[in-house]
């Protein structure tokens, strides 16, 4: 957005201040004014129509009947329970995927082994299958008619239509975020520093903690933020395994859907604003991390100065 605005300003200032002489000296990579204007207008129109307007609509609908109606929608018992469940699921799924993701990225980036490409493809699987299928996998496994259905019933363990099922589906869907973020980063960094640490006598754990982890921390945080956003916002897979039991197995996205289907628009959009705020917060933190990481990168680029 900021970039787009800057280019608009540049474009405008170009019309007013450029002379025919200057236009002849146009840099090789810049386009004619009308091309730039059309492209920028298109981008802004798209941005406004598909991103800004829906976001505004969510807040407008939520506050349509005033602050008290909005507050009532948020503090409703079922809504609160949905918020709690969403936080609980994220609190379990994100740390699990943090560990899985780091382990997978570590294995792929730092070691050579047979079947590595296959493992990378496998990590992408949750991205490539529809979330509904992801949910159905668990129904097939743990449902009453599923592979483990009889065993689970015999021991009175509930996975489907209960919290464990929601957690499992969320873990599956959000698995690639951390690993995907770390693999290219760790591959680019190579194994030199780890080798240096081991030669100096450091144990595997010390090497990871003192050498690897500090080098990947921004990438890791970035992956965790994205993973968390998806864990809280996941609808499809969770919808299949949750059973939509009000106050028990409804996460926030599911709660929004139920309220909406009941024509309870204010309450539906009130809960939706929370998810929208989460998204905005995620974007904010993400930008902050990118800015930080770029800053570190600049420090790294601040090199190759003379010997003296």
């Amino acid at each position: 957005m900021a970039a787009a605005t800057t280019s608009v300003i540049c474009a405008i200032s170009n019309i007013f201040f450029s002379t025919p002489d200057a236009s002849r000296r146009r840099p090789a990579t810049s386009e004619a004014f009308w091309v730039r204007a059309v492209l920028i207008a298109l981008a802004l129109a798209f941005f406004g129509l598909f991103l800004l307007m829906p976001l505004a609509a969510v807040f407008a609908e939520a506050f349509k009947k005033g602050w008290s109606a909005y507050a009532a929608g948020v503090v409703d018992a079922d809504a609160l329970s949905a918020i709690k469940l969403t936080l609980l699921v994220a609190a379990i799924a994100v740390p699990l995927n943090l560990v899985f993701g780091v382990a997978a990225a570590w294995a792929i980036a730092k070691f050579e082994f047979r079947g590595k490409q296959f493992l990378i493809t496998l990590i992408d699987l949750p991205f490539s299958v529809s979330p509904v299928i992801s949910g159905l996998i668990y129904v097939l496994l743990f449902g009453a008619q599923g592979w483990f259905g009889a065993v689970l019933e015999a021991h009175d363990i509930r996975i489907l239509f209960a919290v464990p099922g929601i957690v499992l589906a969320t873990v599956f869907v959000t698995f690639p975020f951390v690993a995907r973020e770390l693999i290219p980063l760790m591959q680019a960094q190579g194994t030199d520093e780890e080798e240096a640490a081991v030669v100096l006598g450091a144990s595997g754990w010390t090497t990871f903690r003192q050498v690897t982890l500090p080098n990947i921390k921004w990438g890791l945080l970035y992956g965790v933020i994205l993973c968390n956003a998806r864990a809280m916002g996941e609808f499809g897979a969770v919808s299949v395994v949750s059973g939509h039991i009000r106050g028990r197995t409804n996460t926030m996205p599911l709660q929004v859907e139920i309220l909406y289907n009941e024509y309870n628009f204010v309450a539906a959009f009130a809960v939706a604003t929370l998810l929208a705020l989460l998204a905005l917060l995620t974007l904010g933190v993400k930008s902050l991390i990118e800015w930080h990481a770029a800053d570190g990168g600049q420090q790294n680029a601040f090199i190759e100065r003379g010997e003296k």
């Binding site: 030199d192 520093e193 080798e195 240096a196 081991v198 030669v199 100096l200 500090p214």
Partner: peptide, 16 residues
Amino acid sequence: VREREVGFVFQHYALF
């Protein structure tokens, strides 16, 4: 490696 007590210097320094 860590028991061999060797010092190793890498081409690309490998400083932390």
